[in-house]
């Protein structure tokens, strides 16, 4: 199956895994879930919207990454998935 992975499980980073899907699913496992769950989901949704991707499966294992890190990891994971596709 096609997957794209980016990031690490180090503190302040996130590991993001994406796979093609026929609907949007976002799963977040975060060390700061109680405080930032909604914000992490929002960053992922906004990034996908900007990339014009509607249907995809996103798994975010977050170790306290800031928004720009999550965004960068997600974009890299998507491009790695697409590279395999090409």
């Amino acid at each position: 199956m096609l997957t794209g992975i980016a990031g690490t499980l180090e503190s302040n980073d996130a590991m993001i895994t994406v796979t093609p899907a026929d609907k949007l699913t976002i799963e977040v496992k975060s060390v700061v879930d109680a405080f930032y769950h909604d914000q992490i989901v929002k960053v992922i949704k906004d990034t996908l919207f900007d990339s014009k991707i509607a249907n995809i499966s996103v798994m975010c294992q977050d170790k306290g990454a800031l928004d720009y890190t999550i965004r960068a990891r997600l974009l890299t994971a998507i491009s790695r998935m697409e590279e395999q596709n090409g």
């Binding site: 700061v32 109680a34 405080f35 930032y36 769950h37 909604d38 914000q39 800031l66 928004d67």
Partner: peptide
């Protein structure tokens, strides 16, 4: 500014 304001917990 860097982290966002943490949401209230249970």
């Amino acid at each position: 500014q860097l982290s966002g304001i943490p949401q209230a917990i249970k």
